[in-house]
């Protein structure tokens, strides 16, 4: 157990370090002088010189990298070129929106995806399976930003049931907040649900045809007990993996949905930054996305050891 967690922790840390290096050099590969980028409004030669000294841009690269990591760890992502506000404060307003949207979408998707996946596996060869499979294939093939577009055109604009765009912070008005975010969350959740459903179904088919499920049936267990106690419990690893992967990708995956529904989240901030060549913001966004992904995956690994006793006890995933 300890060895497994240590290995995973070490691998995560290594990936994190590599990502930081990639971002560091990536930003330096971007066209334009970073000092110019960091300067914001004041672009006088003296100011640029001061910035170079302040950010150590006159130092050799390894030193620069060390200083860069130090600043990142302290939460100093620099200042937005366009707005002049510190990137960290932009993040504190944008992140809650994205996190709320992502969490809501993943909850919806998990409930729908796992439910439909189990149903499709259990009702194999019956109409229920065809319906679930068909829905999943469509969910997998539909561009969800288009679905969002149609939802706005034919649900929000036409009926006025949902606001077409905008956001109200949850602390200001929880009901209005939900009203604004539920449609984007549903739209975002559909594509995820399709992926989760297909993985759940295939894992369930595997465990349903396994020897231990045969044993469970031979013991005289009810189908419901066979499915939940035996088949589903063994499929949980797959479910947790796919849900974790989705969640890890959502921080950036929500970009388009946020863009369409005009939600002032992380994604919108990313797109705006790209079009405005706001390098400090892009850098912070990329680094945060990668970190979120790596951290979530580490948490998933931790969860494995809770679900699977083989990992818990011996440290080797079987």
């Amino acid at each position: 157990m300890a060895r497994y967690l240590l290995t995973r922790a070490w691998q995560s840390a290594l990936t994190l370090l590599l990502s930081t290096i990639v971002v560091f050099f990536g930003v330096r590969a971007l066209p334009g002088d970073p000092a110019l980028a960091l300067a914001g409004e004041d672009r006088s030669p003296e100011a640029l010189e001061a910035i170079r000294r302040h950010y150590g841009l006159d130092q050799p690269l390894p030193v620069q990298f060390a200083q860069y990591v130090e600043r990142m760890v302290q939460g100093d992502f620099g200042v937005s070129i366009r707005t002049g506000t510190p990137v960290s404060s932009m993040l504190t307003t944008a992140l809650p929106v994205t996190v709320e949207l992502s969490v809501l979408a993943i909850l919806l998707a998990t409930a729908l995806g796992v439910g439909a996946g189990v149903l499709a596996a259990v009702r194999r060869g019956r109409p229920a399976e065809w319906v679930a499979n068909g829905m999943a294939l469509i969910g997998l093939s539909v561009p969800h930003f288009w679905l969002g577009l149609l939802a706005i055109l034919y649900l929000s604009v036409a009926t006025g049931l949902f606001p077409a765009s905008g956001f109200v912070p949850i602390l200001e008005d929880p009901v209005d907040n939900l009203h604004h975010i539920v449609l984007p969350a549903v739209i975002l959740g559909t594509g995820l649900a399709a992926i989760i459903m297909r993985q759940t179904r295939s894992a369930m088919l595997d465990s349903l045809s396994s020897d231990y499920v045969r044993t469970a049936k031979a013991k005289g267990l009810r189908p419901r007990a066979v499915i939940t106690q035996h088949a589903l419990r063994n499929s949980l690893i797959v479910v947790v993996t796919v849900v974790g992967l989705q969640l890890g990708g959502l921080i950036s995956g929500a970009v388009v949905t946020e863009q369409i529904f005009g939600l002032p989240g992380f994604g919108k901030m990313t797109i705006d930054a790209v079009f405005q060549r706001d390098y400090p913001v892009i850098q912070a966004v990329v680094l945060l996305t990668a970190t979120a992904y790596i951290v979530i995956n580490f948490l998933v690994d931790l969860l494995y050891s809770v679900i699977d006793p083989r990992i818990r006890v011996t440290g080797d995933p079987a």
């Binding site: 990936t15 590599l18 950036s252 892009i282």
Partner: peptide, 23 residues
């Protein structure tokens, strides 16, 4: 190679596309 794939996965495609579009 596993670390390499981890690294690629850590930068989802939109971020990658954004970076490439920017460069």
């Amino acid at each position: 190679i596993s670390r390499f794939t981890d690294l690629l996965l850590a930068f989802p495609f939109l971020i990658m596309a954004v970076g490439l579009a920017a460069i």
